[in-house]
Amino acid sequence: MAQEDPHSAGSEPTGSESTGVSRRTFIKGVIAGGVAVSSAAYLFRNSPLLTGGSARAGTVERLVGLTVNGQTRRVDVAPHETLAQTLRYKLGLTGTKLGCDRAECGACTVLVGDVPRYACSVLTHSVRTERITTIEGLAAPDGTLHPVQQGVVEEQGFQCAYCMSGFVMSAVGFLRKNPNPTREQLAHGVSGNLCRCQDYDKILTALERGAELSREVARG
């Protein structure tokens, strides 16, 4: 990471020129500022991208290769940017919803590795080396729905469905670890997701159907 040079990335890193501060002058600046030289290696560029403010001097790489839904995409990520913001506003993956933005509803759930996490409450830079899967990445390339999605279609589990992608991602992550849950275990598995339309019973029935279809697919 420390060695990564934004200029070797192939594409021109937006904004790095605009500050007029090169990495070299930055390091000098840091020494002059009395901070240990070693700190410089871990600095990330402070981005004006989301705030519209100007970048502070003394910042470095913010260009990361983020692996989302099996594709590695170069994206310019501000240090203070959450994964939900990167997915929705930088990569256009708006299937990931924002409900509370406070780890209290689950609408933003995505898989980091195989693990369901709240995309609203994790910095993108903290998971930049991980495989990320969103609702858009579940279906097969030929359009065949993921068995959990198919279960939702068959049982019509949701009403407004704002909470749906979060529930589906939670269920998919949970089922990878527990392919054969009881209804109660499945409910516990998706307990970090809320539905404002309050139809948990139908949601669970749909997800249970999804679990069943997942097992059928696994059996081949």
Partner: peptide, 15 residues
């Protein structure tokens, strides 16, 4: 539902 206006104020990120 809380209004999502929450861009975290900028900080330096050290990893």
């Amino acid at each position: 539902m809380a209004t999502v206006r929450d861009v975290i104020p900028p900080f330096q990120l050290l990893q």
